[in-house]
């Protein structure tokens, strides 16, 4: 019997430089059958190994309707992600998963989807936006609020441009540090909420981003009248197993790997998110 911690080999088939520090890696399992049987819910994550350097939890950023390959959008912030950033097309990595619960998009049918993303936190949300695109007729409108450091640090530029043009999609981007040629919004992502008429009824919010951004976005959305059960946030914690054993991702009575990473506002209210 194979231990669940055993990674499966996968090959990098494409590397795309998103920003100076962020790359999107598209990979395929070496075992064709495994790739064929692979499926996931948007918001799930996988444990990605760089042999010789270690393993890290990374959210899937590709479409759940396009599973001939899997994409991970990774910022170069740690030793393992740095090692991954040095890798090229054709090289091998290890993969296991997917793990976690993901966003319950089935339950969101007939509603407006409001995406609030900060920086690299856009990666786990992108697969949900793709799902919306794929099944537009099942939902009302989609609002994408995206905040990033500077126009240079903007992720998924081609996607954003494409979505701006599409029907039923409203895209608003803001940057913290604008360049002279920047014509869009400046400031934190919460400032975008009153730039557009947001429908509170029949809407759900999907959030992902740094701790501070999540904290203030949840407050901002609640001020607009959103209730806890309309809010869903994906959390980031250190993980070493993804299975519920290593206990690094423990927050109060929840484990981010096995109970999350997506938690509803009702759950978040009971969790000690800020322990320091």
């Amino acid at each position: 019997m194979i231990a669940p911690e055993t990674p499966f080999k996968a090959k990098i088939i494409d590397v795309k430089q998103e920003t100076s520090e962020i790359k999107t890696f598209t990979v395929q399992f070496l075992d064709k059958k495994q790739q064929k049987n692979f499926f996931f819910a948007p918001g799930k994550f996988m444990m990605l190994s760089v042999f010789g350097f270690g393993e890290m939890p990374i959210s899937i950023s590709s479409s759940p309707y396009k599973t001939d390959s899997i994409a991970f959008t990774v910022a170069n912030v740690g030793s393992i992600s740095n090692a991954l950033h040095q890798m090229r097309k054709g090289q091998e990595i290890g993969l296991r998963g997917p793990y976690g619960n993901g966003f319950p998009l089935q339950k969101f049918r007939g509603k407006n989807l409001i995406f609030v993303a900060g920086g690299c936190g856009f990666a786990p949300l992108r697969s949900s936006v793709y799902s919306f695109q794929e099944k537009k007729q099942e939902f009302k409108d989609a609002f994408v609020f995206f905040g990033c450091r500077s126009p240079k640090e903007m992720l998924f530029k081609t996607d954003l441009k494409q979505w701006e043009r599409e029907e039923k999609m409203h895209v608003l981007v803001t940057v913290d540090e604008p360049t002279p040629d920047w014509k869009g919004y400046t400031g934190v992502v919460t400032k975008l909420f009153n730039k557009i008429d947001l429908p509170v009824e029949d809407s759900v919010c999907l959030l992902c981003g740094p701790q501070v951004m999540l904290h203030f976005s949840l407050i901002g959305l609640k001020k607009l009248g959103f209730r806890d059960k309309q809010l869903f946030a994906s959390l980031e914690r250190l993980m070493h197993c993804g299975l519920g054993y290593c206990a690094h991702c423990n927050i109060g009575q929840k484990y981010v790997c096995r109970d999350g990473p997506v938690f509803s506002g009702e759950e978040l209210a009971k969790m000690p998110l800020r322990e320091d």
């Binding site: 010789g52 350097f53 270690g54 393993e55 070493h240 054993y245 206990a247 690094h248």
Partner: peptide
């Protein structure tokens, strides 16, 4: 029982 894992090169 909490643990971490790491690769040794």
């Amino acid at each position: 029982y909490c643990y971490s894992s790491d690769d040794c090169f």
